[in-house]
Design a protein around this nucleic acid. Sequence first.
DNA 1: CGATATGGCTAACAACGTTAGCCGTCAAGC
DNA 2: GCTTGACGGCTAACGTTGTTAGCCATATCG
Lengths: 168, 168
Amino acid sequence: MSERTDQIVAEARALIEEGGPEALTMRALAARLDIRAPSLYKHFPDKLAVEAQVIAIAFGELAAELEKTGSLSELAAAYRAYALAHPHLYRLMNSGPLPRHLLPAGVEDRAAMPLVRAVGGDEHLARAIWAFAHGMVILELDRRFPDGADLDRAWRTGLAVFREPVQH
Amino acid sequence: MSERTDQIVAEARALIEEGGPEALTMRALAARLDIRAPSLYKHFPDKLAVEAQVIAIAFGELAAELEKTGSLSELAAAYRAYALAHPHLYRLMNSGPLPRHLLPAGVEDRAAMPLVRAVGGDEHLARAIWAFAHGMVILELDRRFPDGADLDRAWRTGLAVFREPVQH
DNA sequence: CGATATGGCTAACAACGTTAGCCGTCAAGC
DNA sequence: GCTTGACGGCTAACGTTGTTAGCCATATCG
């Protein structure tokens, strides 16, 4: 990972955070670095590789935030907070197929660990809560809930329910 | 809605179901109808309008499936079944911002009604369950769960938990 | 001193959505 | 019956996208 490479990824991230994933264009990215688009291919094989680096960084950041938390509700709050603070980044890393072959190994697992720990190792429960959290976040980002819906309340409802021990 | 218009939408849908949303191309769509791409603009103002028609149809179909169910677990099963039967269609209608201004009024509400009824009108609980279901489906379609994860079990876990009455 | 890697560049291609403008067919109105 | 206009095709073209080919300057190293 050279110096220049890091610069490129940083600018790519900025483009995405400012204008969404579709604002990341090889030409726009090059313009930010005062070079022409084809020169980017001296550093990355293609656009997907650039995106993958941005995704890898985002996963690391998210994992770091989640690791700070103690309880399940703190974890959920941190998850939602990251998504709302970086909506375009969240969408990039969490929708569509992941380019796993371009990502450092373990980034996904690290981000998942705090939740698995919070539910005491029950993988099925962890997956259900993950689905709930991702669903809440992505539906909010995509404006699928009615305007003015009380989403705090919906989060509390879901989390309260998941805290109740039931056999499954 | 003319005859030709319906044909176009049908072919657009077929393209999406076969190759995903990015396979819907004005040129590919035209080719299916043995015409050239610009001729499509005699029937639709732009590509988004075509997509919106496909989405509207998909919402109607999904709503019809959901309305057949009685219990919450049947509802969940029907929801998942539709998504797995039409993965590309599901992704098209349920990710990214909805072109609501191009959709007939009430299509979203109709698809949401069965769930609201199944939970006895509790809107917060309905939103939490919707998030859970959408999260489970989209994470499955996007292959975000580990290979071989027992998703039936995760669904059952989530649904069991949501059936328990708790105050929120 | 020369070879090689590094990192720029221009020109270009194919595919995309979309627009402009032309033309044939056919039904309705005078 | 002739004309007029809507309807629905067409070709040519434009601008934007990712990407490739190939050229060239600099700088480092044997």
